[in-house]
Amino acid sequence: LKTAGVNTTDKEMEVLHLRNVSFEDAGEYTCLAGNSIGLSHHSAWLTVLEALEERPAVMTSPLYLEIIIYCTGAFLISCMVGSVIVYKMKSGTKKSDFHSQMAVHKLAKSIPLRRQVTVSADSSASMNSGVLLVRPSRLSSSGTPMLAGVSEYELPEDPRWELPRDRLVLGKPLGEGCFGQVVLAEAIGLDKDKPNRVTKVAVKMLKSDATEKDLSDLISEMEMMKMIGKHKNIINLLGACTQDGPLYVIVEYASKGNLREYLQARRPPGLEYCYNPSHNPEEQLSSKDLVSCAYQVARGMEYLASKKCIHRDLAARNVLVTEDNVMKIADFGLARDIHHIDYYKKTTNGRLPVKWMAPEALFDRIYTHQSDVWSFGVLLWEIFTLGGSPYPGVPVEELFKLLKEGHRMDKPSNCTNELYMMMRDCWHAVPSQRPTFKQLVEDLDRIVALTSNQEYLDLSMPLDQYSPSFPDTRSSTCSSGEDSVFSHEPLPEEPCLPRHPAQLANGGLKRR
């Protein structure tokens, strides 16, 4: 031991701790050491302190810390799992109470259905409401065949629209698609105040090879029609059969078919879209009749726009005509997947739907009320060519290029400059510069009032120099000039209409 001194630092001082000593042992101690050379000694003081209470040693090893962490984590996880189980049990009790009230408590799974309603004014964004509309049932219905791709499903009954099956008599087919079909039928007692009145209706139903998605689409269309409500110039929902059998959606019946066929059937002799010497046209149409058709469609679209509904496929083929020549817009409630459109795929009647699409819908897939206005301009062109085919002879690839360059279709022969300028306004490259349906209704209403009933179509000018029955994407082998976009001569082996020498072909294109 070194004694503290003047020249001794703290580091040089050493402390020796002795245990089991008493206060009597306190004092100075000297350590002597010697050898043959000499003797040396050092002294140190022993200080006795009071004994401290002994405390248990605390484990601070890493293993002990890990044990604490794992135990704490396990406890927290157990609490979370327990909370989830309690929540599930409570929510399951509430669901079972709800389904027992709906009398569908025996169901095993559900079809996820979404009601898609486009509400954005400047995009294709949609509001999806995840309302459960249908659930599968283990119960089988008697007297009705089961669908191959869709098991029997039981829908919640809506008393406002439900019609008993025994009050619906199915008739002949009116048309069909890939998985759905429409048949003519007679409904008894659609009007609650007149329970014995028989009404001719159209009934939409699924085919035998339909899938769950097809069922989902049909129900979504029905729900959309319920929500949009009734208007004179749209196909209205009349009722539905949802209980004890396949789903039947009952809508208004339009006896004169779609507008395109309606116009073609009323072309003057010699100007029909397909040469037929025995062709006997229906009643002749006046200019006022054509303007009235456009006015009614505009009114229907104005109503749909007021309900925040974007059609996305407005064309003469999707406008139906009733016995009283009332125009009714159809298929506005269809669920369309705008992100998976095949631009080169034709519709069932051979038309390319892209020829009715606005550039922003075609290139950027942006659907708005103003893109519907563009389609309405093409529909106007169809009306005043009596069912002509837009951009005849123009392949899709060429159409993309022409639209980007600002080309537009030429004025039809039997169309006034004012109406043609309306078409051109609908085809404005900037969507915000196109008229609204409200403005179109006002303009067409004024034109109808000024147009005489006696103004019949000028038969001295050809209505349509093209054969719409030909595929639109076909290139002409005998077109006049180098560019078949601006002219389209008859093919030698097929009868077509004579070309008027002083008139540019109706399907020609102009640059805006």
Rank of each mutant, 00 (worst) to 15 (best):
F376I: 05
D464Y: 08
A315T: 00
K307R: 03
P195L: 06
D464E: 08
S278R: 09
E282D: 09
L290R: 01
M224L: 15
L263R: 01
Q433L: 08
V182L: 06
K194T: 10
I366V: 04
N414S: 13
Q439P: 00
D364N: 03
S255F: 12
S306C: 13
A294S: 14
R408G: 00
S286F: 09
D337Y: 15
R197H: 10
P412L: 01
W427L: 00
K307N: 11
M423T: 00
H231R: 11
N453I: 09
I235F: 01
G350V: 02
F400S: 09
P353L: 04
P277H: 09
N280Y: 05
N417I: 06
L237V: 09
G257C: 06
R197P: 05
N318Y: 02
I338T: 08
T416I: 11
Y303D: 04
V201L: 10
V203G: 02
H231P: 03
Y343F: 06
R260L: 02
G229V: 15
A429E: 05
V183M: 14
G270R: 12
T242S: 12
N453S: 10
V183E: 14
A265D: 07
H311Y: 00
K401M: 07
E405K: 07
G481E: 14
Q433H: 10
A305D: 09
F332V: 02
L459V: 06
R365G: 15
L463P: 13
D372H: 14
R336P: 02
G189R: 03
W374R: 04
Q296L: 13
P281T: 14
S484F: 15
L386V: 12
H428P: 00
Y420N: 05
R317T: 00
K346R: 14
A298T: 01
G180E: 03
T347P: 02
M327V: 04
V198A: 06
K204R: 02
E382G: 03
S216P: 12
L444R: 00
S389T: 06
G350D: 02
N258K: 00
T436S: 07
M225T: 02
C293R: 04
D458A: 06
P269A: 07
H369P: 10
V203A: 07
F363V: 05
V354A: 01
R365W: 15
D313A: 01
P412T: 00
H279R: 10
K194I: 06
F179C: 05
G300D: 01
A185G: 09
N276S: 11
D193H: 10
V203L: 09
S371R: 11
E223G: 04
D331A: 00
L190M: 13
D425Y: 10
E261A: 10
H369N: 14
S452Y: 10
S475I: 10
C426R: 00
T477M: 07
W427S: 00
N258T: 03
H339Y: 04
R267T: 01
N417Y: 13
E397A: 13
L362V: 03
T347S: 08
G239V: 04
L386R: 09
Q181P: 12
R474Q: 10
K192E: 13
E397D: 13
E418V: 06
I235L: 11
P468L: 03
H311P: 01
S460C: 09
N318D: 02
N280K: 05
S480T: 14
L285R: 10
H407P: 00
R266L: 03
Y303S: 13
I338M: 08
I341T: 14
E302G: 07
E272A: 06
K194Q: 05
R351G: 03
V485D: 15
L237R: 15
M301I: 08
K355Q: 02
A210P: 08
G245C: 03
D191V: 15
Y344H: 12
T242A: 06
K256R: 05
M421K: 05
C426W: 00
K308M: 06
R408C: 00
G387R: 04
P246S: 11
N417T: 12
P431A: 07
I250S: 03
P390T: 03
F384V: 10
T199S: 03
V297G: 03
L402M: 04
V441G: 13
L352P: 02
V441E: 05
E442Q: 10
K207R: 11
H340R: 05
D342E: 10
V354G: 01
